[in-house]
Design a protein around this nucleic acid. Structure first.
Lengths: 149, 149
DNA sequence: GTGTAATAGTCGTGTTTGTAACTAACAAGC
DNA sequence: GCTTGTTAGTTACAAACACGACTATTACAC
C-alpha cells in the first residue's frame, strides 16, 4: 500500500522548510525573550541596523516583506522606542526610519548573538560546503520557477 | 552609520527562510487552487499517501508538526472526504487514518506535480550539488543548536 | 487649474497559528 | 476495586498573518 517511489523526505521545499524552521527556532527565542520582538520586528531592526536610515518600502523590497507587515512591525518598534520615524519634508508620504539609541543597543546585542549562533549552525560544515550552501540558497530564492501547469 | 561587518544577506536562518518561502510559493498555489488545501493538509495527505495508514501522532513525529495542527488538518481533510478515520478496536484513543479514493487521486496528482516542480527547482544545480544541499539541509534540521547564552 | 493614475503607508476583517487546558482511554501500583 | 500517571486527540482563546480596501500625497496629462 505505501508508495515509496517519491520520498517526501527528499522533496526540496519540504527540506528547506524543515531546516529553516529548525534553524530559526532557537534564535527566535532570543529576540523574543530579551526584547519581546517578533520575527518581522527583528528583521526590520536588522535592516535598519545594517543600512542606517531607510523607508518602509525600501525595507520591504530588501526583505521581501509585505508593506502591511512592515507597517505593523514599525509601529510596534516605534511604540517601544526602538525606532524613530521622521517624515520627509519634500514628499510627505514618506517616512525615514532609523534606530534610537535603545534600538541600536538591541541591534548590537542581537547581531553579536546572531554571529555566534550562526557559527554554531555552520560548525559541522567545511568552508567550501558553507559557500556552496549559501550560493544554492541564494539561487533558489532568486529563481522562482515559472510554474503554471 | 550603516554597519556592514555582518551582512544579513548571509545569515543562514534568513537565507533558509527566504529560500524556503520562495520555493514553496508556486507549489502552494497548486494544492490550494486545485484542492483548496493548506500546507498542513498537504503534508498530512502526503504522509498518508507515502506510508499508507498512520495515526495522527505518527504523522506528528515524522512531520515534526504539533498535534493540534494535525488534528485540524485531519478534520478538514476528512470533512472533504480526502481522509478516512477508523478507530482502533484495542486502544480506542487511537485513530487510524488513510486516504479515500478521492484522497488517493489528489495525492497521485500532487505527487506527480511535485516531482516535476522539484525538477525545475533543481535544474540549475549539478547532481553533486543537489546531494550536498539535501545532506546539509538534513543536518541543519537534525542538529538543533543547544543555544542558551 | 481639473482629472486620472501612481505611490507611501495604514486599517479592517477573516483565516491560520500557537499555547494551554481539556476529555477520554489506557496502564501500573496498590 | 481505586488512585495516579500517561497518552491520543480535541477545543478554546489569544496572538499573528494575509489580503484587500482605504487615506493621504504626489505626479502627470490635458
Amino acid at each position: 500500500m505505501p508508495d515509496s517511489e517519491f520520498a517526501l523526505e527528499t522533496f526540496l521545499p519540504y527540506l528547506l522548510n524543515q531546516a529553516a524552521e529548525a534553524s530559526s527556532l532557537a534564535f527566535q527565542q532570543v529576540y523574543k525573550d530579551r526584547y519581546g520582538m517578533l520575527r518581522t520586528e527583528w528583521r526590520v531592526l536588522f535592516h535598519l541596523g545594517l543600512y542606517g536610515s531607510m523607508t518602509a518600502s525600501e525595507i520591504g523590497q530588501r526583505a521581501r516583506m509585505h508593506k502591511t507587515k512592515i507597517s505593523r512591525a514599525v509601529n510596534r518598534l516605534s511604540k517601544r522606542r526602538f525606532v524613530e520615524r521622521v517624515r520627509d519634508d519634500v514628499d510627505r508620504r514618506v517616512e525615514h526610519l532609523s534606530l534610537t539609541v535603545k534600538g541600536r543597543a538591541a541591534y548590537q546585542d542581537l547581531r553579536q548573538t546572531a554571529e555566534r549562533y550562526e557559527a554554531q549552525l555552520l560548525a559541522p560544515f567545511t568552508v567550501k560546503e558553507v559557500a556552496l550552501l549559501r550560493q544554492a540558497l541564494g539561487k533558489l530564492t532568486n529563481t522562482p520557477p515559472d510554474f503554471f501547469t
